[in-house]
Write a protein that binds this DNA or RNA. Structure first.
Lengths: 156, 156
DNA sequence: ATAAATGTTGTATATTTATGCATATTTAAA
DNA sequence: TTTAAATATGCATAAATATACAACATTTAT
């Protein structure tokens, strides 16, 4: 049954978009979208999603996808690092060569590594140049398009 | 009474060092350090500290200082940015001049800004140079010492 | 110094959340 | 298809957590 999958998706969305402070409230919202489950199931769903209840600044509590937020912050930083240093990229065979501002190669390479692209097998950095070994069978077009889709903030 | 302050400190420490999954458990730990309070008080303490209970990867839950973690991650990144680009710093009057590797000035200036040092009024970046306007009355020694104390990772 | 305001705590309790168990549903295997 | 294993769910309830209220302590203002 992927009733549950759908439900998890909606729950995520609801938690991101609203400040919800109890499972009861969330149940009502779900019910309004025609997902009718009990609090028990919801509790298990939240556990699966690793949702936690965090104390609000002023008063009360709200549910939050902490782990995801952490990841997002870190991802944004990587993208910033790339955008800051990036000059150009060219391909030849299974190699991608990135040119960067002087001194930025390490940073850019590190950021690419952190993004954990499955298309890249490895990177190596000089001062203003990064070599990337691309997985066989990928065209530069494939690669760039996928990259831009996955990381909309990336100006490449 | 700063009984509470002390207690909050210990609680933070305990949460960082152990995987605690209920206030009962934490109460026991506290009691072993001669802090004897009720669950009600502990609940309020955790709220003050913005501690939240997060689902563990495999099973169960644990308390965590999410917000602090987020801040720490971000701080570490700033320090990395500075260390990566930093060459030297010199002072004249209320100005500090940071030299960086070529192209790193923006990054370094941004990182300094993000650290939110109250000694710095503002920064401006060229390509390999950052100007910082320092708050009146600060000596370079004051400034650097305070900086190193607050950010032990900083190699300046 | 006294009164008023603010902050801290415990008690008792309400509220919220997690889970054992039985049942139903889905998926995989024969 | 039938059967077996795995997964999902509800019900009931246990366990965990938050809070209203009253008492007391501390700080601030007069």
């Amino acid at each position: 049954m992927n009733e549950r999958k759908d439900r998890l998706k909606i729950i995520k969305k609801m938690i991101k978009e609203n400040k919800i402070d109890s499972q009861e409230k969330l149940l009502e919202l779900l019910s309004s979208k025609n997902f009718n489950v009990t609090q028990a199931t919801l509790s298990r769903d939240l556990k699966l999603l690793k949702v936690s209840k965090v104390p609000d600044t002023d008063r009360g509590y709200y549910y939050s996808l902490v782990e995801e937020e952490l990841q997002k912050v870190s991802e944004e930083r990587n993208i910033m690092d790339i955008n800051r240093g990036f000059l150009s990229i060219n391909f030849s065979g299974n190699m991608g060569v990135v040119r960067t501002f002087s001194g930025h190669a390490m940073t850019v390479a590190l950021a690419f590594d952190n993004l954990e692209l499955e298309e890249i097998i490895g990177t190596i950095a000089g001062d203003d140049t990064v070599f990337m070994v691309i997985k066989e069978g990928m065209t530069p077009e494939n690669f760039l398009e996928g990259l831009r889709n996955r990381f909309p903030g990336l100006e490449i």
